[in-house]
Amino acid sequence: MSPTSTSRARSKELLAVEVLLPENHEIKNLRSIKPFVSSLFPTVKVEMRPSIGEQVEDEQMEAVASSLASARVKDPTRSEQDFEPMYGELDYERRVLEGEARAGGILYDGRILEDIFSKILRPKVDRASIVLTDRLVSTFSRDDLRHHLRTIVCGFPSIVSLPGIVEAPAKPREYYLIKQKLELQGAGELRIEQLKSSFKGRFLDYDDARTIEVVKGLVFQAVMFHLTLEPFCEKRGCRLFNAHWQEDLIRSQITSAKLCKDHTRQLKALSSCPSIAW
């Protein structure tokens, strides 16, 4: 995590936020992120940019594809993955970068992705770069020695995983128990939608119109990380809460969608003067 700066004089104030759109563009109203961030930080310029693949120069394509193929998490119990990427993995990554294949279904190490994206975007101190991606992203936890799916990996740039919003925070425990039972009966595929509807509102699914509100909240967390290095709040009702359960995610980002008192005060100060505290 080492942002570079070309201008020391301007490095203490956030001047711009750039949000890179995801590869597949499946979530509606992503453009509404711009007015949302502008409303929070009126002095900051907000740019919506094409996906990371479109930032890669032709001559860099093979090297970036190779790095992405090497960033895959094949064994979630190992902090470092030691493997030589296959010809087909390189080919797939190149096709995704060139827009010929869709990203998805593969788990990537968020910290390695951050490093790859950093080399492409060359983030600056006065500019918060946030990459929205259709890739599943994880980080390794020293607590239980395994990788965990993430909705957001804060860094330079920060990465927001859109499928991670559905897959990373856990659904209600009963959902998994019933689903497991259905799969054992061989009826998982046919009854999955019925099962989902019986838990309606308790977790986000793909194509859920409310997802954009969560994306906005995660982008906000990424901006707060850039300003303070402390993106999360411990209070469940705060929009900066780092939810590990779907029900908490819905509550903090959709039902409440507000900040706690302390963060309301902090935002008020940052809103007029978005100074970088590190």
Binding site: M86, A103, G105
Partner: peptide
Amino acid sequence: EHTGFCHP
């Protein structure tokens, strides 16, 4: 999406 060449 991954269907394709895996080796020459």
